[in-house]
Design a protein around this nucleic acid. Structure first.
Length: 317
DNA sequence: AAATCGTGGAG
DNA sequence: TCTCCAAGATT
């Protein structure tokens, strides 16, 4: 959960997740939809699928015990070099190395590493420094400490060098250029993608959801029906067996932007209200009705939750 | 090796 | 409103 996600954001998800899945075996038994349900809103949903697969692998290959060495940990899905290092060092007190965003920033400044953030050359230097600094005694404390130094003192903007216990030996500080590290590459402008979301609602107020493919954005989650911006109601009808006489009214809502890290999605919602329960629509395995107020038993993206909430206040629609 | 994968906090 | 990025991994 902590991968690329601030700890404060994770806390409530972590607590709910562990209440539901208190053990590796319980997690291994869970369906993918059930795990995704508890990941809803956290993002990077691939982590949830990996975590479930890792639990299954731990049960099947390691007798339910999480392996303690870095190599075995790294072989588990979703656990890379840094996460494996963190687990081995903090949970099992093995001499193992972490390189997360905090450590990366601390080392970049301390050694004045000038390469662009994220490039292979820079990563190699950072890993070399990180490993060279990893102690054999008190690894757990060291690992937590260098992360906290980055999170609390050596922060990205306005680092608190006056409070830093190692500022004297920090090259960036010596140069008075701590703001210059780590150096960042020019980011290309965000592309904009356009999509049309058909939000089909039946007479009972239930919304039609479709399970998304296992790759791409919101993989394996349930969402309203996404189509290219050019798609028509006719194209939708073709897909799900919708006839015009089933439609009571169609409402277009103003588009809204949803920002991702690498692009923006311009979402144009079109609400389609149907007569009655519309049992005429044959639901395939990846198609299902969902009543907005009901507790979901499957994964929903934040955008889907937003659209469903709009239905709840659908007096306005 | 560059792209991709989400959402929210902070400045 | 915009940019940057967070307890990164995978393809």
């Amino acid at each position: 959960m902590l991968q690329q996600t601030q700890a404060s954001t994770v806390v409530p998800y972590f607590e709910r997740f562990l209440t539901r899945f208190p053990s590796v075996r319980r997690l291994a038994k869970a369906s993918e939809d059930e795990v995704l349900e508890y990941w809803t809103g956290l993002g990077y949903y691939r982590r949830a699928r990996h975590l479930r697969m890792a639990a299954i692998e731990v049960v099947e290959k390691h007798a339910g015990q999480v392996p303690t060495d870095v190599d075995a940990l790294t072989s588990l899905p979703g656990i890379g070099r840094s996460t494996a290092g963190a687990i081995a060092a903090i949970a099992f007190r093995q001499t193992a190395t972490i390189l997360d965003g905090n450590v990366r920033r601390v080392l970049s400044r301390f050694y004045a590493i000038s390469g662009k953030r994220g490039t292979a050359k820079t990563e190699k230097q950072l890993w070399a420094r990180a490993e060279a600094n990893t102690p054999t005694a008190h690894v757990d404390l060291y690992t937590q400490a260098i992360m906290d130094l980055g999170a609390i003192v050596c922060v990205r903007a306005n680092p608190k060098c006056l409070l830093c216990p190692i500022a004297n030996e920090c090259k960036a500080h010596q140069q008075g250029r701590e703001h210059a590290y780590p150096s960042v590459a020019r980011r290309r402008p965000l592309r904009v993608r356009h999509a049309r979301f058909f939000v089909v609602i039946n007479g009972q107020g239930a919304c039609l959801l479709k399970k998304r493919p296992p790759h791409g954005v919101w993989a394996s989650l349930w969402s309203p029906l996404e189509y290219p911006q050019s798609a028509s109601v006719a194209a939708l009808s073709e897909d799900i067996g919708l006839r015009t006489e089933m439609i009571s009214k169609t409402v277009s809502r103003p588009p809204f932007r949803h920002a991702f890290t690498h692009y923006q999605l311009e979402i144009e919602p079109i609400y389609i209200f149907l007569h009655g329960s519309c049992s005429e629509i044959v639901l395939s395995r990846d198609l299902r009705w969902h009543r907005p107020g009901d507790k979901a038993e499957f994964g929903l993206s934040a955008v889907t939750v937003k659209l469903l909430e709009e239905i709840e206040g659908s007096g306005a629609l």
